[in-house]
Design a protein around this nucleic acid. Structure first.
Lengths: 242, 242
DNA sequence: CGGGTCTTTGATACTCTTCAACACCCGTGG
DNA sequence: CCACGGGTGTTGAAGAGTATCAAAGACCCG
């Protein structure tokens, strides 16, 4: 566990994405070179933030882009009705804060304690235009996030709550890399309310759906924020049964 | 009408996106230089495709990226249940075909007659790495699409069909630039089924919702594929009442 | 151990989905 | 010119599922 982390995430920002093209090696993920990371560190500041910290608000002047090195962040929007819509959950090696016309479009808030790199937007722009390879990594990363976002849209098409939740758990399991593959444990750092706001369900329905998955012996919950996959095949079948 | 088109879309591919930073000019949209367009034309082929042409299928080997210069395209996924989920509707100056590990992730099909530039992925990659400014345009564009995708996710959070449809019409109106602003006409080239698959509703519900909007005198339909906004404020209010 | 937050559980109402029949548009062929 | 047929869209009635409101229970942190 520590070995992988030490080798994959040396000091400095990192990005996780799947490349456009098929690569020969089993290097499934894009990685930045040491030099690229060092350059990013030069224009960035490392921040450690406690849970619930609001990193920025919708509409705020955007002068920075953020790269997560540790922890979980949610990106959401406040709707007039007082409800929230969670756009994405962001983890290690994710990027956020890509603004529109100098303004952020979402709010972002730390879920757990997080470590992020705050990169100056203007300096980053210059750096990217200068270093075509680095920019290509960013392009790949954003494309990756676009695909993830579209996948979520597919998820929302399901009308049944247990199915949506099953897909969600699989999503989170994927994000947790191979740690889940071995232990079958899936950390769900966000609250039930956040999950509901992401899945487009009420929190009561999420709760009931979770109970249903447990009843069907597909998963169980060691704690509220740690699911264990009891029947991987069954869960996958339900998740795929769109 | 023709004047604007002639000035904004000279020969060659174009991209429409909102920049990260606030720009001084009222140039709201990113535009490619003539030289960049010419470079793209060098590595691309112009294709004219009749309606219903399937441009590529999910899982197919991806060797090209496409830029639309005219017409409408839908990007969708076939679900096991036989249903479809439409990920996005794509128009003039949109980009599609960003692959994952050498495979396309969605199917794309022409809705109307379309003109697209097919760009060789390998050559585009080289070109982008060489031309930092051009690549930055692509980065901006993909980021723009990411935001659009997230916006759709917000849209889906509404449970009421008339509200979803109202948002959809506003979305389409925006895409139609200022043409709608003057004439209040919104072209909806896609079928009701496509709209349903995009909105996460059944087509019957879309039909009923359309009837409801007409009944409330918010819009009317000149033809099935051409909506007219009767009460812009009322429609906007309903669309924003998330 | 206690207060507050978050989660679970229960009953009712509401909206959409589904299934089915019907209307419409348009190109084809008589 | 009109009748026909397929695809597409509309309308109707019954059923399923979730949202909502309300209240009790579990958990965390000080």
């Amino acid at each position: 566990m520590e070995k992988a982390a030490a080798h994959a995430a040396p000091p400095g920002p990192a990005l996780q994405a799947v490349p456009f093209m098929k690569v020969a090696a089993e290097t499934d993920k894009v990685v930045l070179t040491r030099r690229q990371r060092e350059q990013l560190m030069l224009i960035g500041t490392r921040l450690r933030l406690p849970p619930r910290t609001v990193i920025y608000r919708e509409g705020a002047a955007a002068d920075s882009v953020f790269a997560i090195t540790e922890g979980a962040v949610k990106s959401y929007r406040e709707l007039r009705s007082g409800k929230r819509s969670v756009c994405a959950f962001l983890f290690q090696r994710d990027l956020f804060g890509l603004a529109e016309r100098g303004r952020y479009r979402n709010c972002t808030q730390a879920i757990t304690r997080v470590t992020v790199y705050r990169l100056s937007l203007s300096q980053l722009t210059l750096l990217l235009k200068r270093d075509g390879d680095l920019q290509f990594q960013f392009l790949t990363k954003v494309t990756h996030e676009l695909r993830e976002s579209q996948r979520r849209a597919v998820l929302i098409h399901r009308r049944d709550a247990p199915g949506r939740l099953a897909m969600f758990i699989e999503l989170m399991a994927e994000r947790n890399d191979r740690a889940t593959a071995r232990t079958r444990r899936v950390p769900l750092p966000m609250s039930r309310t956040d999950m509901a706001d992401y899945l487009g369900l009420s929190l009561e329905t999420v709760s009931r759906a979770a109970g249903e998955l447990v009843r069907r012996k597909l998963v169980k919950f060691e704690t509220l924020h740690l699911a264990v996959i009891v029947d991987p095949a069954g869960l996958a079948a339900l998740a795929a049964a769109v």
